[in-house]
Amino acid sequence: MNSYKELKVWQSAIELAVICYETTGEFPKDELYGLTSQMRRAAVSIAANIAEGHGRESTGSFVQFLRVSQGSLKEFETHLVIAHRVGILPAEQFQKLIRHSDEIGKMIRALIRRLQEKS
C-alpha cells in the first residue's frame, strides 16, 4: 500500500470526522468550547494518527500510532455518550455515530493484528 489514503480505515475515519462536524454544528452555541470542540478534536485525531503512523514507514511506529488512534476513538465515543445523556445529541444520531465508531474500532484492531503478524 503506497498511501494511507488507500486505507479503508482512514477513509472511514475521515467520514466520521465530517459527520461529527455536521452533527456538532447543531449543538448549542454555549457548547462551542466544550463538547463541540472536544468531539471535533478527537474525531479529527483518529484519521490524523492513522496517516501519521503510515508516514513513519516503520511497522512498529505505525502500530503505535494506530493505538493512539484507538485512544482518540474511545475518547470520541465517551463524548458521544455524554452529549447524548445531557440531551444535545438525539438518539438516532447517537446510534449512527456509535455504529460508525464501532466499525472503525474493528478495522483498527484488524490492521494492528495484520501488521503485528507480518513483523
Rank of each mutant, 00 (worst) to 15 (best):
E6V: 04
L7P: 13
L7A: 13
K8N: 13
K8E: 10
W10F: 15
W10Y: 14
S12G: 01
A17I: 06
A17E: 11
V18P: 05
C20K: 15
Y21M: 11
Y21K: 12
E22V: 01
T23C: 12
T23W: 08
T24K: 11
G25H: 07
E26S: 12
F27C: 05
P28W: 03
D30E: 11
E31P: 05
L32W: 00
L35T: 00
T36D: 01
T36Q: 04
M39F: 06
M39I: 05
R41D: 05
A42P: 09
A42R: 14
A43C: 14
V44N: 11
I50H: 12
A51F: 03
S58E: 12
G60R: 08
V63Q: 04
V68T: 05
S69H: 02
S69N: 03
S69W: 00
S72M: 07
K74L: 14
F76T: 10
E77D: 09
T78I: 09
T78H: 11
H79V: 11
I82W: 01
A83N: 02
I88M: 02
P90Y: 04
A91T: 14
Q95S: 15
Q95C: 09
H100T: 06
H100E: 10
G105T: 03
K106F: 02
M107C: 01
I108W: 00
L111R: 04
R114Y: 07
R114M: 06
R114I: 07
L115I: 10
E117V: 07
